[in-house]
Simulated scan of single mutants.
Amino acid sequence: MSDAYAIQAATLRRRGMPAVGFKLGYTSAAMRAQMNIDQPNFGVLTEAHRLGVDGHTIDRGRLIHPRVEPEIALRLGRELAGAGHDRASVSRHLDAVMPALEVVDTRYPDYRFTLVDNIADNSSSAGFVTGPALPWQEGFDLGAVEVELRIDGQTVDRGRGADAMGDPLLALAWLAGFLAERGLAVPAGAVVLTGGL
Rank of each mutant, 00 (worst) to 15 (best):
D3G: 09
D3F: 10
I7R: 11
A10H: 11
L12Y: 11
L12R: 15
R14L: 14
G16H: 12
G16Y: 12
G16T: 12
M17P: 10
F22P: 08
L24P: 00
G25Y: 02
Y26R: 02
T27P: 08
T27I: 10
S28V: 02
A29Q: 13
M31G: 00
A33C: 04
M35P: 00
N36D: 10
I37W: 01
D38C: 03
P40R: 03
N41D: 10
F42W: 15
V44E: 08
T46Q: 07
T46W: 08
E47P: 08
E47N: 10
E47W: 12
G52I: 05
V53D: 03
T57C: 14
D59P: 06
R62I: 14
R62C: 15
L63N: 06
L63Q: 04
L63P: 03
P66Q: 01
P66S: 00
R67V: 07
R67M: 07
R67D: 06
V68W: 04
V68L: 15
R75F: 06
R75W: 10
L76M: 13
G77R: 01
R78N: 13
E79Q: 11
L80Y: 02
G82V: 02
A83P: 02
A83D: 14
R87I: 15
R87C: 13
A88E: 10
S89W: 05
S89R: 10
R92M: 12
H93I: 01
D95Y: 09
A96T: 15
V97Y: 09
M98P: 03
A100M: 06
A100E: 02
A100Y: 03
E102R: 00
V103R: 01
D105R: 03
R107V: 11
R107C: 12
P109W: 03
D110R: 14
D110G: 08
F113M: 11
L115T: 03
V116P: 02
I119W: 04
A120Q: 10
A120R: 10
D121R: 14
N122H: 14
S123H: 05
S124H: 02
S125E: 08
G127W: 00
T130N: 06
G131W: 12
L134W: 11
L134S: 13
Q137V: 09
Q137L: 11
E138M: 15
G139I: 13
G139R: 13
F140H: 13
F140E: 05
A144I: 07
V145L: 09
V147F: 15
E148C: 14
L149T: 14
R150E: 13
R150S: 11
D152Y: 01
Q154A: 08
T155H: 12
T155Q: 13
V156I: 15
V156M: 01
V156F: 01
D157K: 14
R158F: 09
R158C: 14
G161C: 05
M165I: 04
M165S: 05
G166I: 11
D167N: 05
D167G: 00
L169M: 12
L169C: 05
L169R: 05
L170F: 03
A171E: 03
L172D: 00
W174E: 01
L175D: 02
A176Y: 02
F178I: 04
L179R: 03
A185R: 10
A185K: 04
P187E: 07
V191H: 00
V192C: 06
V192Y: 08
L193E: 05
L193H: 07
L193A: 02
G195P: 03
G196M: 04
L197V: 15
